[in-house]
């Protein structure tokens, strides 16, 4: 799921720190905005926009962090509005609801573990490519 690849240029200390921060950004936002799925995306989006003119290594990792948040946005938003409808409307807690929330939780946990792992290794200067997300990032983020 996570591949440790060699980046074609050796990143500098400053680049490594910024790239690692892009993952940390989503983690901090995850802690602050857990019930509000849009917050995580906004945090990584702001960080991405702030670094879109940065070096390739920084841009690449900001893009991968952003993409991972984007896919979870749909999953979490659906769960969020479902929960709101249970609280405020006639919608009831059902087996489908619990199954969906558990699925969303499992995917969020995997994403969080992957984010922490990537943030640590990126800080060490290693280039981590996620399965699927790494390929999409390679396709949209050019040197």
């Amino acid at each position: 799921m996570i591949a440790l690849n060699k980046f074609f240029v050796e990143p500098t200390e400053h680049e490594i720190e910024k790239a690692s921060n892009s993952y940390l950004m989503s983690l901090i936002a995850l802690m602050a905005g857990l019930p509000f799925p849009i917050i995580n995306l906004l945090a990584t989006l702001i960080f991405y926009l702030g670094n879109r003119k940065g070096t390739y290594f920084v841009r690449w990792h900001c893009t991968q962090a952003l993409l991972s948040q984007l896919s979870l946005l749909f999953v979490n938003s659906y769960g969020f509005w479902w929960t709101i409808s249970i609280i405020f409307t006639t919608e009831k807690i059902s087996n489908h609801y619990i199954a969906y929330m558990l699925t969303a939780f499992v995917f969020n946990v995997f994403e969080m573990i992957a984010t922490i792992y990537t943030a640590i290794h990126t800080r060490k200067g290693k280039h981590i490519e996620w399965w699927c997300y790494g390929n999409i990032t390679n396709a949209i983020c050019k040197p």
Binding site: V75, S94, N95, I98, A99, Y100
Partner: peptide, 17 residues
């Protein structure tokens, strides 16, 4: 995603919890 959801949907969570 849908496979995990499908598997978890088979469980009677309301009774379990």
């Amino acid at each position: 995603f849908f496979s995990v959801l499908g598997v978890l949907n088979q469980v009677d969570w309301l009774q379990l919890f």
